Amino acid sequence: MFNSKKLLKMKTLKFGLLTLLAILFLSCNQDKTENKSVALNTDKESIEGVVPEAKHYFTKAQFQEAFDAEIQHNIRLGSDELMKDATDVVNATKKAITSIADSSYVEAKNSIELGIGKAEAITALNPELALAPVDFEIGTNDLIADISSIKAVKDLAEEALDDGRIQEAAQLLDGLKSEIEIKTYSLPIATYRIALKQALVLAKEKKYKEASTFLNATLNTIVVEKKRIPLPLIRAEHILKKLDETVQEKDFDQKLAKQLLENASYELKFAEALGYGKKDKEFKELNNAVKEISKVVKNTSNTDEKGLLQKLRAKLSEFKERIS
């Protein structure tokens, strides 16, 4: 089992090689790419055109703090005691299988009984609990690219599909993600407890081979849940929090507020370009909210009387949770 503190440091950067090469090529030919994008669509409001990258206010290390906080928020699946008890149930199951293989049948039965006891304790303390977390894995895919390059890579993938080069298209699209992926492994606690009791009956009947097979099958009932949280949305949340603090200050720095708003807007467009959420609905609402807030930023007053920033932050948080 993994240690949660260590897991926060286990960040893996995953890129499709073909996508990375395509992005590098497009970056080296920036002028050609941008001209092509503008020719395809001259609507300045659309992500299909060229969206200039905003000058970043936060450093990569500062954003990492936001990513770590998001991970911590999402792995608070239960108390440490609950996770330990659930882990003990799994370990008891594995030990019983090993004991049967070693012909240590008394130890095997003792291990199964220990697992049953732990499982029943979890159920008694958490009667409504369906899944008891035992482990999790964390991976980070952080795409380093600009929006025009993403658009161009999508065009390359479309061309590959049109030519029947399906695997090439799949490789290109596989690299177009910027997210934290959290895998949670959980016991279906009610059915797991019943399965252990059935394995104990087999062991007491000296049907050890059948009991071992049954225990292995029981381990395979562990549920794996995946959650993907878009990094651009986490960054946008972090930026908007700072913006909210800035506009509430007396004689707030309008130049800084404008920069922060541009940063948040860019991150939303970056998430939109990668296809997180529905372009025609969620992002339209978010982008309209940003436009309204830009009026507040231009105002010389130091308060957000309509609470537009708080509303946008709440809407963004809800959106992020919904699509993750």
Rank of each mutant, 00 (worst) to 15 (best):
V90Q: 04
N41C: 06
K14E: 06
P188G: 09
D68N: 15
I144D: 07
K36S: 08
K118C: 02
K109N: 13
T218D: 09
L129V: 03
E113T: 11
L143H: 05
K241Y: 11
I47H: 12
K295L: 10
S186T: 11
T191M: 08
T303K: 08
E34Y: 06
K311S: 13
M1Y: 06
D102F: 06
R193K: 10
A195N: 12
K315I: 00
Y185A: 08
I293M: 07
E262M: 08
T42M: 10
L200H: 04
L176F: 03
A66C: 13
A145D: 02
A152Q: 12
E292Q: 09
R228C: 00
L114I: 06
S294R: 15
D280H: 15
G117N: 14
Q64W: 14
G139W: 08
H73Q: 15
I97N: 06
I222W: 12
K207A: 13
C28Q: 10
E305Y: 12
L233P: 00
L143T: 07
P127F: 10
E137A: 09
L172P: 07
D280V: 13
A199P: 04
D174C: 02
S149K: 09
T42V: 14
L233N: 00
T93D: 02
A145I: 03
A96R: 01
D155N: 14
K55C: 10
E225T: 11
D102L: 12
S46E: 07
F283E: 02
E305V: 11
T42I: 12
N287W: 05
L260C: 07
K242T: 06
S111K: 14
K14P: 03
L312P: 04
Q259W: 03
E179A: 01
L40R: 13
I122Y: 02
H73P: 00
N35D: 12
N141C: 07
A130Q: 12
G139N: 10
E70Q: 12
K109R: 08
E272I: 01
A289W: 14
L82E: 04
C28L: 11
K209F: 08
M10E: 09
V224G: 06
N41D: 11
L21Q: 08
E225Y: 10
A314D: 14
T59D: 10
K84H: 06
G16A: 13
L261I: 05
F58Q: 10
G164I: 13
S27P: 00
E113A: 09
S46I: 07
T191W: 01
E158H: 11
G277W: 00
A217R: 11
G78H: 02
Y266T: 03
K298C: 04
G49V: 07
R322L: 14
E179S: 01
F25T: 12
S148L: 05
E249I: 01
V90N: 02
G139H: 05
D253W: 04
F319L: 01
S148R: 15
K298V: 03
I239T: 09
K5T: 13
T191D: 13
F25D: 07
S148I: 01
A203P: 04
S294I: 04
L200G: 03
Q72T: 12
L173A: 00
K60G: 04
K320R: 15
P133S: 07
E267Q: 12
L309K: 06
D135I: 09
S27Q: 05
T87A: 15
V201R: 14
Q171N: 15
I122W: 03
T213S: 08
D142R: 13
D80W: 01
K44G: 11
L286A: 02
V89T: 02
T221A: 06
A152Y: 05
